[in-house]
């Protein structure tokens, strides 16, 4: 599980969306399994990479089950009939994200935290090696933020998937992520949280007159 962190406007979401081929790259090249991202067609990519975005759903009138089932689209036939394997994968995703009680509810009946878990389950059902998430914990309270972080970590470790997400929850990322990419203006450090603390990668993140980083606790202090 890896997080991309950095201040607003540094390009976290841009990077994530470019990797997900949602927007065209600005420059450089992106390799996925040592193949240029450009050479993948939409369907090939859909079985390698799934996404959870910040944009709202167009229709919230889908049931939780229907929405998660849409994650199986890359594998279903021309009219979208679910095979037995698809149904197993959907139930696995529901169990892993603990949505069994909610599966027949409509999406408009859910809270933000529940809906985010449904979207994660949909990405899980898509059964890809990589899951990209854009700020999965925004709009959530502390409890639900921790819940999502722990959920992502357990998914990454149990299923051996790569989970890459953008976040403003630096302290939580330090505690729970395997690796972090810190986007600064010039240097972009990538590594394990404790290595990054030793390299004092987090100190440069914000202007020193507002907050300072305390390496011993891995947290930020507000300058008074």
């Amino acid at each position: 599980m890896s997080a991309i962190i950095g201040i607003n406007g540094i390009g976290k979401s841009t990077l994530l969306r470019t990797i997900g081929k949602i927007q065209p790259k600005l420059s450089g090249s992106i390799l996925l399994n040592s193949r240029d991202l450009k050479s993948y067609n939409a369907l090939d990519l859909a079985s390698l990479l799934s996404i959870v975005l910040t944009e709202p759903l167009v229709s919230k009138n889908l049931t939780v089950l229907e929405l998660i089932a849409l994650g199986r689209q890359p594998y279903t036939n021309w009219i979208g009939t679910l095979s037995d394997k698809d149904k197993v994968k959907i139930q696995e995703a529901i169990t892993m994200v603990d949505l069994s009680d909610l599966q027949y509810k409509k999406c408009y009946e859910l809270s933000d935290g529940q809906l985010q878990r449904v979207m994660i389950a949909r990405a899980l059902a898509q059964d890809t090696a990589i899951i990209l998430l854009d700020e999965p914990t925004s709009h959530l309270d502390l409890h639900h933020k921790v819940q999502i972080f722990k959920l992502l970590k357990s998914i990454a470790h149990k299923t051996n998937k790569t989970i890459l997400f953008t976040s403003h929850e630096i302290e939580m990322a330090i505690q729970l992520c395997d690796k972090i990419l810190v986007l600064n203006k010039e240097v972009h450090d990538f590594g394990k949280p404790d290595e990054l603390i030793q390299k004092s990668a987090f100190e440069k993140l914000f202007p020193i007159d507002t907050v300072s980083f305390d390496p011993s606790t891995g947290s930020f202090k507000i300058k008074k």
Binding site: I22, N41, A42, L53, V58, Q126
Partner: peptide, 24 residues
């Protein structure tokens, strides 16, 4: 009828539809 699958994925939004392998 051949568009039923893309139409359903469009319920999530265009970006999601593309990520599900739809040739938008």
């Amino acid at each position: 009828i051949i568009s039923i699958k893309p139409l359903n994925s469009l319920l999530l939004g265009e970006n999601y539809a593309r990520s599900l392998g739809v040739n938008l």
